[in-house]
Design a protein around this nucleic acid. Structure first.
Length: 423
RNA sequence: AGAGGGGUGUCCGAGUGGUUUAAGGAGCACGCUUGGAAAGCGUGUGUAGGUCUCAAGCUUACCGAGGGUUCGAAUCCCUUCCCCUCUACCA
């Protein structure tokens, strides 16, 4: 969430930023917000000055009662009783004005970083680097949805039976490959200083608000019927919310956390030709890295996180590219996002496997996540990234490494899997 | 899940309708003292909003959260969350 003082002081920058993110009527909205804030302030002042009078009178009545001057106290009481209505009225009006303003404010996305390219669709994302080269594919190379059947390692039909579409069952070497990837990714993160967290995978409404899923995107999350808890769409939500309503000691920054969780996405309405097999699921596993920084170090951290993710892909010897997302393709809360895509040899297309973002103060403002610098409390910057999401990595590994003697496991994973081939 | 007891500032802890402007203690910071330190003494010590050119000051809210009663609520009432003890259940 953007802050009102920022918007007031930088209304032109705000309008330009929102326009880059393709918010319609940005200028109108910004001016409306400022007017609403003026209204809120004025009402608040009126309520507070009435309260001040009433507080003073109450105190006076108190001391009159104590000294036995009951009659004088009664007179005073009758006088102040009349104030009650005014106070209530003004307070309610101020609260309503504030709510109206916040309701509008929460609908605004974060402002993009200056390096974010203009553009509306995924085609306009900027490719900033490509690593490796196209895998040598045999002529009859099969897509992963055929390979998983051939080797009986991932079973969609069983998933359909026990749950529904998009909930695969991993079996035998398929299950062990999952476990190997999870441990590999966690170990690599821990090696470079991340602290492992195992969070709950159900979260409450406050947490959903804190990281920007609520209000608005509840349609993308599963909810429990009795408690109204949400199944997490990513570990970002619980791990970042660990710091909700926290003033972090400056010395503890930066904070670097990593966690593995299953992720649940309803993906309502997004099924189609390009989402076969492991390309898009309702439940999948992901290792997420989360960092909390002082403002001046967050962009350096973003680059470091991007390099960490790239290092994982290089160790797995996957041909990949890095994109800088354009204004229209970026997430709601992000100021700058890099997407990593791996080449899927049999589908002949790039698959997004990671998204690394700096949210600057956007989440921190919702979370009330602050630190103190020179005695003043300031909002922290939050960042996160997938390092990595499993299904599309599995898809690419299966497709790119298939051969006559089965699927070759990348060397670095063999100590984790305990086998060299799936066959 | 049932019965009972709780939730107060950085921490401990007092406080059941009116100088509470949240006592007292500890911690922390600064100062005095000291050869240096400790002890001692003194001062300060939260968050958010408003007012203000800045600062100071003034002011409003905050005693788990939300609502209510009252001229006045940490204190009374309602709702809700969390913690502890016992019982039940369970991995």
């Amino acid at each position: 969430m953007l802050t009102i003082p920022f918007i007031r002081a930088n209304s032109e920058i705000t309008i330009q930023g929102l326009t880059k993110k393709h918010v319609a009527n940005a200028s109108e909205i910004v001016h409306q917000l400022i007017a609403m804030d003026d209204q809120r302030k004025s009402l608040l002042q009126q309520a507070e000055s009435a309260l001040e009078i009433s507080n003073a009178a109450a105190k006076e009545i108190g001391s009159l009662m104590q000294s036995g001057q009951k009659e004088l106290a009664e007179v005073k009481r009758a006088e102040t009783a009349a104030l009650k209505g005014t106070i209530r009225e003004k307070e309610e009006a101020a609260k309503a004005a504030e709510k109206q303003m916040l309701d509008l404010l929460v609908t605004l996305p974060n402002l993009p970083h200056s390096s974010v390219p203009k553009g509306k669709t995924a085609e306009e994302n900027e490719v900033i680097l490509t690593w490796g080269s196209l895998p040598n594919m045999q002529v009859d190379a099969q897509p992963h949805w055929d390979l998983i059947k051939k080797y009986d390692i991932i079973d969609f039909d069983l998933g359909n039976k026990i749950t529904g579409a998009g909930f695969p069952v991993y079996k035998g070497k398929g299950a062990r490959l999952q476990r190997a990837l999870i441990n590999f990714f966690l170990d690599e993160a821990i090696k470079v200083g991340y602290y492992e967290i195992q969070p709950p995978i159900l979260i409450n409404e406050d947490s959903g608000f804190g990281t920007g899923q609520l209000p608005d995107k509840e349609g993308q999350m599963y909810v429990t019927k009795e408690e109204g808890l949400f199944l997490i769409p990513t570990a970002e939500v619980p791990i970042t919310n660990l710091y909700r309503d926290v003033i972090v000691n400056e010395k503890e920054l930066p904070i670097k956390n990593v966690g593995h969780t299953p992720c649940f996405r309803r993906e309502a309405g997004s099924w189609g030709a390009h989402v076969r097999g492991l390309n898009r699921l309702h439940q999948f596993d992901k290792i997420e890295i989360v960092q909390i920084h002082k403002p001046e170090t967050s962009y350096q951290a973003l680059e470091e996180m991007s390099l960490h993710v790239q290092g994982l892909l290089q160790k797995l010897n996957l041909h990949y590219r890095v994109l800088r997302l354009c204004g229209g393709d970026m997430g709601f809360a992000s100021a700058l996002t890099y997407d990593m895509e791996v080449w899927s040899g049999a589908q002949n297309r790039w698959l997004e496997v990671s998204s690394v973002s700096n949210f600057e103060t956007f989440q921190a403002n919702r979370l009330k996540l602050r630190t103190k610098v020179d005695g003043k409390s300031i909002l922290c910057h939050t960042l996160n990234g997938s390092a990595l999401a499993l299904p599309r990595i599995v898809a690419a590994l299966l497709e790119n490494n298939q051969g006559p003697d089965g699927i070759k496991i990348p060397e670095i994973l063999v100590p984790y899997t305990g086998f060299t081939h799936i066959n």
